[in-house]
């Protein structure tokens, strides 16, 4: 509908190229191009690595060949433990992410909207921020034991700060000019927040979510290194103890894959909800 209509544009009005539908096949091809370009270097790297391993340049007890690592992952998948490890780690990151983000949204909105809340909370939060988050590990273990709660709390702490900071700066950065537009139409404070301030601070919020998620993956490793019986971080420790470099690298590869996958999901959400942004298009 939209696209059809825009071709009837009034005289002298430019119809941006974007609104005209390209043939679908061509667009699909275009969608694959970045994937192909992006995989050139990893593929070359893996091939060279495999070749050098086969030639015996890398000692297998230190750096096994990619095929060995791949087989390790396949083995893990076959005996079923792979899904357990991935599932537990993903669950921890997800739970910590949700918890950290939730708290960050509440505190960030309060601090962003209300001057009193800013004066009340912000100095303390900034002070906490200067503590390296990993320093909390011993305390959390002491408080919550070695089980799930301490791990999830750890991750939540990591996720909290980037999300919080971006929400606050997003809200404070909303253009006074568009707030005035809202005021001209008689919006009350609540409507101003929901109809103008929230959508306008969305880009910043999503940036916070993505960096928060990145930190979540970082912290899950720390949390699982400190003691776990399952999870990709446990696999790292296990590989080290059993002197199996292929298990360690398999775990690293799995981290990379699911980390990237989760970031890709957030990025897709970002692209979809921020399609209105006027961004630089590289040639």
């Amino acid at each position: 509908m939209a696209n059809q209509e825009s071709s009837y544009a009034a005289d002298g009005v430019v119809v941006p190229e974007k609104s005209i539908d390209r043939p679908r096949a061509k667009r699909n091809l275009k969608g694959w191009k970045p994937v192909l370009l992006g995989s050139i270097f990893p593929i070359i790297l893996i091939l060279v690595w495999e070749l050098l391993s086969k030639m015996g340049v890398f000692p297998p007890y230190q750096l096994p060949a990619p095929s060995v690592i791949f087989l390790t992952i396949v083995e893990l998948a076959k005996d079923g433990s792979l899904w357990g490890h991935i599932g537990v780690t993903t669950y921890r990151v997800f739970a910590g992410f949700v918890l950290g983000t939730g708290v960050a949204i509440v505190l960030g909105s309060l601090v962003g909207f209300f001057k009193n809340a800013e004066q009340l909370f912000d100095p303390m939060i900034q002070a906490f921020r200067s503590i390296p988050s990993l320093a909390w590990v011993p305390l959390f273990i002491l408080w919550m034991g070695i089980g799930e709660p301490s791990k999830i709390a750890m991750i939540a702490v990591g996720v909290f700060f980037p999300v919080y900071l971006n929400i606050v700066s997003g809200i404070l950065g909303v253009d006074r000019k568009i707030i005035e537009v809202g005021k001209m139409y008689g919006l009350n404070t609540f409507q101003l927040i929901t109809r103008i301030i929230l959508p306008a601070s969305m880009p910043s919020f999503l940036v916070g979510l993505r960096s928060g998620l990145g930190l979540g993956w970082m912290f899950v490793v720390a949390a699982e290194l400190m003691g776990a019986s399952q999870g990709l971080g446990f696999l790292l420790v296990y590989g080290q103890n059993m002197a199996q470099p292929e298990t360690i690298i398999a775990s690293i590869v799995l981290f990379a894959i699911i980390g990237k996958l989760s970031d890709w999901i957030l990025k897709a959400i970002e692209t979809k909800s921020l399609h209105w942004q006027d961004r630089l298009v590289k040639s």
């Binding site: 825009s6 430019v14 119809v15 006027d278």
Partner: peptide
Amino acid sequence: VGLQGNEHLYPRELSGGMAQRVAIARALVT
């Protein structure tokens, strides 16, 4: 304001003149 057919464009897709016409329409519609 002469913008029929452009209802579903986003501000970034508008020229300066078109955007100002939208602003005029927005002010007049009430």
